[in-house]
Design a protein around this nucleic acid. Structure first.
Lengths: 114, 114
DNA sequence: ACCATAATTCCAGAAATTTCGAAATATTGG
DNA sequence: CCAATATTTCGAAATTTCTGGAATTATGGT
């Protein structure tokens, strides 16, 4: 993926997360782990009509941040860790160049333990 | 900042970056370093009218991603590394819990050297 | 005081996003 | 095949965002 294209994609991904409901859903899915959640349950948890949630989930999926898989009548949605990783890496790349200390700070503040 | 409030802020910050021009400008400012850039130069570089750019810069500043400072007739804009750090940390927190391996992958792929 | 420069704010039209009920599609069970 | 359930797609109104010319504010030089 060329530099210009990844930036176009990043705008989409950021836009997908730039919405109260969608960000909440995405975080929920990340926390839910690899099994993900059923579409209906997601809508119920977020207190929005199924139709509305369907649009939001489609937006997240188009942006490559979630994946869906049908299992009989239910549709499972799970976070796409690779997409998220790509986004975070993209955002950090420039920061690490412009502000060498910043990445270190972030690494320290997270340390992958919470 | 409470959990719910940081998420509200995060939506704003993500929305600020979810625009082709604004993302390009933000990355430019990060790369430019602590001295930042003059408003007019930014508009010129991005090939948008000063008025339009002023709106975009205000959006980024409201979101806490850039800072401005007047120096005589010129206004310097610089990336707000603390804001960016807060956003990246926020996004990573959930990921590190839901996908313990993911943060490690990101750390490896960056390693703060480019 | 006046003029020139730099940038913002005002304004309003254009474009995109958000919302959700109703209708359509997909799947299973009887 | 028919009914029930899960979800998406359609459609259209409401809201928000984006854009940029014109007017305004701020600063410095002569």
């Amino acid at each position: 993926m060329t530099e210009v294209n990844i930036q176009v994609w990043a705008v989409d991904a950021l836009g997908a997360l730039a919405h109260e409901t969608r960000l909440a859903v995405f975080r929920m899915l990340v926390t839910a782990g690899p099994d993900g959640m059923i579409a209906g349950t997601i809508a119920e948890s977020a207190k929005v009509p199924p139709s509305t949630m369907s649009h939001h989930l489609a937006t997240l999926e188009r942006a490559g941040l979630v994946q869906s898989e049908r299992e009989s009548r239910l549709i499972h949605y799970r976070a796409d860790y690779e997409g998220m990783s790509r986004l975070l890496t993209f955002l950090m790349k420039d920061c690490c160049q412009g502000a060498p200390d910043m990445c270190a700070d972030i690494f320290a503040s997270i340390s992958c333990n919470g």
